[in-house]
Design a binder for these strands. Structure first.
Length: 646
RNA sequence: GCUCCGAUAGCUCAGUGGUAGAGCACUCCCUUGGUAAGGGAGAGGCCCCGGGUUCAAAUCCCGGUCGGAGCUCCA
């Protein structure tokens, strides 16, 4: 038996070949087409080179170019090809890591001076030569001593080498002149890399540690098919066009001002309208779900955060204290302690629970200047924060209620989503058994509903595990969405109590939850999701009324008034040519253009043009048009041609 | 915070060691329009701030401020 390879294939069939045969041999035995398309193989769950000799009984899956699992292999090989090129053109370059990442790959180099855009082009050209040469990737297992010898000129690789366990298998890969310490696997040869692009270069710390030296990282991407590469590049362009900072200015939604301060958002009237609509919607939603609204101060005594533990665990993200009459005050970085104080203003019976307390609470957090980014990462933001105080056995029901809320809300905005369960981080309050218990409750609720989720080990907050919802936007990117955190810690610290049926004092559980997270980040994300073309209910300006000439000015004004009387945000634009005004309305992404010419003025109708709909127009009775817009607003409808992500 | 890049009109950007430029936006005039830019005129600048080099600096050098990409973290 030992001289045989029995490969069990995904379809259940078994191929028998002499021991020492490789996945490539198996592919060839099945057919020449598969042999050509093969990239790597999955053997007993591990991805390996096609050329790896196999023996005995194995589960084998041949990865072809069409298999999504093959892409990281190609991209990792692309990183080696990049390093080959860089080593040729910059012989002294030290090498760091060069992994495949979600959208491509990168490689880190230790070089005297940073790379220029021109150099990236030169590297691409050199990579093409390496690909042309079709160098095979050769895997070799080496001893620790041999590895030290091989990488004696590469201090970064030597450092990595020292971290291996005694019994760890050390492998190196060679292609042409380039040798790398690498676990693999790789595509069979450099010729398999055809469709790639280098995208950018930037500094990155060795091992991501800012105390270590800065390396120069080159990012690139690679695909098996030219059409996939092109589609990806188009998507990058599309993402750039959707940049909320650019659209935010064009659509006059928000700005920042150096005099106001970095990371602090000024909401212009149009942006404020979008935010107001979201807040109104959410307020309506949560009141329907049994929440109560509260308000708490923005600046509170530091004592509160001493009790909550924020001073101890979150101080590096808090604004400095200000002294007032001998007491120290801080801008609040979180709303929970305030809500707890409200809870503690009364005694509570088990009959009162659950108490669901919500606030659009503005918080301030110190973020390092380099991480601030438009509306997505700021220093002052408003959370749609809520806390649920409940008995332990009410927790699953409250989680269920939240799952409903989240689903309804995300569907309204046109976001598909995924769920992650984040577990105990290194820096954590509470005991291990408390954490396990809490994690079990969260997982159990999801499983009871048959909701698929992923684990994010160590991703929890310091005070409890959480469910993270990731939104998927219209161009397939993931965004941080709602989070639900279980907290068995703050109730402890503050000594929260309720009186049970047994007339004894008990400790309530506490849930923290946000739906949109922060108004700033959510609106910034929405701008990119919709590419600035908000659905009617969110659009800052819902209808633009356009008289064709001055003769219809009055008739147009009447229409605008009718719309406003119906609660529709309508503006009138006279002056200029009709063409110019249509163009302006399209550029501002106003959903409806209501054109009033001689014919419409006489007939009491309106010629309606829909945003992005080109010359198509529909002539409607005015009342019918007003009713249509109202209905669209009432139902919070997405645009008919809007294509959500996924 | 760190590395790199940048900063010129409200916006997007050219440009040069010797008088400051374009397009769009803005104001005015002509045009009264039928679905993505009608025509003309005008106004608008401490060329980010401070220092240095120079006969001369918006341009070259140094420092700062602010912005962008990336590293880490997060709503």
């Amino acid at each position: 038996m030992a001289d045989l390879l029995r490969a069990r294939l995904p379809d259940g069939s078994v191929k028998e070949l002499p021991a020492g045969s490789s996945a490539a041999d198996v592919a060839a035995a099945i057919g020449p087409g598969l042999a050509r398309a093969a990239v790597a193989a999955v053997v007993d769950g591990e991805t390996v080179d096609l050329a790896r000799p196999l023996a005995g009984e194995v589960d084998l899956r041949i990865l072809t170019e069409r298999d999504p699992d093959a892409l990281p292999v190609l991209r990792h090989s692309a990183a080696h090809v990049l390093a080959t090129a860089v080593r040729t053109l910059r012989p002294g370059a030290g090498i760091g890591f060069g992994p495949a990442i979600e959208e491509g790959f990168y490689y880190d180099f230790d070089v005297e001076r940073p790379f220029t855009p021109d150099e990236l082009e030169a590297f691409e050209a050199e990579m093409a030569r390496v690909i042309e040469a079709d160098q095979p990737f050769e895997r070799r297992q080496v001893s620790r001593e041999e590895a030290r010898e091989l990488f004696s000129d590469d201090p970064l690789k030597l450092e990595r080498l020292e971290e291996f366990d005694e019994d760890e298998v050390i492998t190196v890969y060679r292609n042409g002149p380039f040798l790398d310490l690498c676990r693999g696997p790789h595509v069979p040869s450099t010729g398999r890399l055809q469709h790639f692009r280098l995208l950018s270069a930037a500094g990155a710390y060795w091992r991501g540690d800012e105390r270590r030296q800065m390396l120069q990282r080159i990012y690139g991407t690679a695909f098996f098919k030219d059409r996939e590469l092109e589609a990806h590049l188009v998507r990058l362009e599309e993402a750039k066009k959707r940049d909320h900072r650019v659209l935010g200015r064009q659509l006059d939604l928000f700005s920042t001002d150096a005099r106001v301060g970095a990371g602090l958002i000024l909401w212009h009237p149009r942006g404020a309208t979008v935010r107001m609509e979201i807040e109104n919607y959410e307020r309506e939603l949560i009141l329907r779900h049994g929440y109560q609204l509260v308000y708490t101060p923005h600046v509170v005594s530091e004592k509160l955060f001493e009790i909550s533990g924020h001073l101890e665990n979150f101080a590096e993200n808090m604004f400095e204290a200000m002294e007032v009459e001998g007491a120290r005050y801080r801008p609040k970085p979180m709303n929970c302690p305030g809500h707890i104080a409200i809870y503690q203003a009364h005694q509570h019976s088990y009959r009162d629970l659950p108490i669901r307390m919500a606030e659009f609470g503005t918080v301030y957090r110190y973020e390092r200047s380099g991480v601030l980014h438009g509306m997505l990462r700021v220093r002052g933001f408003t959370q749609d924060d809520a806390h649920v105080f409940c008995t332990p056995d009410q927790v699953p029901g409250e989680i269920e209620r939240l799952l409903d809320l989240v689903h309804e809300m995300l569907t309204t905005f046109g976001y598909p989503y995924t769920i992650e369960l984040a577990t105990r981080p290194e820096k954590a309050l509470g005991t291990a058994s408390q954490w396990e218990e809490a994690e079990r409750v969260l997982a159990g609720t999801l499983e009871a509903r048959d909701l698929p989720y992923q684990l994010d080990p160590g991703g929890g907050a310091f005070y409890g595990p959480k469910l993270d919802f990731k939104l998927i936007d219209a161009i397939g990117r993931k965004w941080q969405g709602p989070t639900v955190q279980l907290d068995f810690n703050l109730p402890e610290r503050f000594g929260l109590e309720y009186v049970g049926e047994d007339n004894e004092r008990h400790r309530p559980y506490m849930l923290h939850r946000v739906l949109v997270g922060s108004m700033e980040r959510f609106v910034g994300g929405l701008v990119e999701h919709y590419a600035g073309a908000f659905p009617v209910w969110l659009a800052p300006e819902q209808v633009r009324v356009l008289p064709i000439s001055e003769h219809q000015q009055q008739s147009a004004e009447h229409l605008a008034e009718e719309l406003r009387a119906a609660g529709v945000r309508a503006a009138l634009h006279g002056r200029d040519t009709l063409n110019a005004r249509i163009r302006d309305a399209e550029l501002h992404k106003v959903p409806y253009m209501a054109v009033v010419g001689e014919r419409e003025a006489a007939a009491g109708t309106v010629a309606v043009r829909r945003r992005g709909g080109g010359r198509k127009q529909e002539v409607l009775e005015r009342a019918a048009f007003v009713e249509r817009v109202r209905e669209e607003v009432r139902t919070r409808a997405l645009d008919p041609d809007f294509d959500p992500g996924g």
